[in-house]
Nucleic acid binder design. Sequence first.
DNA 1: CTAATTCCTAAACCTAACTTGAGGTCAAGT
DNA 2: ACTTGACCTCAAGTTAGGTTTAGGAATTAG
Lengths: 154, 154
Amino acid sequence: MKPTDRLSIGQLAERTGLSVSAIRYYDAQDLIEAERNAGGQRRFMRSDIRRLSFVQIMQQFGFSIDEIRALLQTLPEGRTPNKADWRQISRSIRHHLDSQIETLEKLRDNLDGCIGCGCLSLRNCELYNPQDRAQKKGAGPRYLLGDKPALETR
Amino acid sequence: MKPTDRLSIGQLAERTGLSVSAIRYYDAQDLIEAERNAGGQRRFMRSDIRRLSFVQIMQQFGFSIDEIRALLQTLPEGRTPNKADWRQISRSIRHHLDSQIETLEKLRDNLDGCIGCGCLSLRNCELYNPQDRAQKKGAGPRYLLGDKPALETR
DNA sequence: CTAATTCCTAAACCTAACTTGAGGTCAAGT
DNA sequence: ACTTGACCTCAAGTTAGGTTTAGGAATTAG
């Protein structure tokens, strides 16, 4: 198999673990671009395996198709993407990832102290939502999400 | 406001930051139970603020409505949930959370070494997908997802 | 050459988690 | 009493990310 060989959609599906229909969908969503052969069938470059791997990974990270397309579009049009290009993408991903992890850790750490103690069960947990004062700050379960009462300044 | 007071759906919405329609939806999905007044309007207990906060938090964690309902149903029917009840719920949540965090961290750590170096850009990155040998292992972007080549046994 | 695969498009369908709209009722203030 | 705003139900619509189906055309194996 020469590097000039093109892959059919079925082959690409096998290599990426995606379904054929998903790849067509990604094509329609402009995440990949396919050449067409004489008979109108899609032909993909081998580098599309990596491109689709990237798509799958980003989905794991919680990125939407739109966001992934945006990331991919920062790649250069004509030329081969270089280290700097990927580093650029990598930076925004790390950012997103770090904040996701931070949120989860914050939630987890509060979980033991707050849900674990039975806060949510009844009327009088000072820690979770003292005297219902939380309402003054607006809506939502603020304390568990990082906007904690002064008490627990740890 | 006495502890015996009940909240209207609008008041509950204000206190939780949820929309009225979302609360009706959760009611229909049996995440909360509403009493009805003489005129047929929903009346909620103040503890439902916490219940809905819990729902919102669990959604942040990536739990589906079905999963949240299951968690809530482990709470006792007649009696007030106690420490042990919540600790029980807390345990399954931590489990879920820890693995979520672990996955994200693994992905993040591989990101710098792998995407950051330009692996996805072209043909010859031994680390990412040496000689395309990855195909033997089945589908998907395995290496970045934890199934790394022997090289990097760190 | 023929049969079995694979591929094509377009349109419909699917699930989750809600929102919106229509048509009507209830509650609160004056 | 009246008006306004909050509520009610039920059905349909919405978005994301695909899958399924129908009816054909192209490719590949023998």
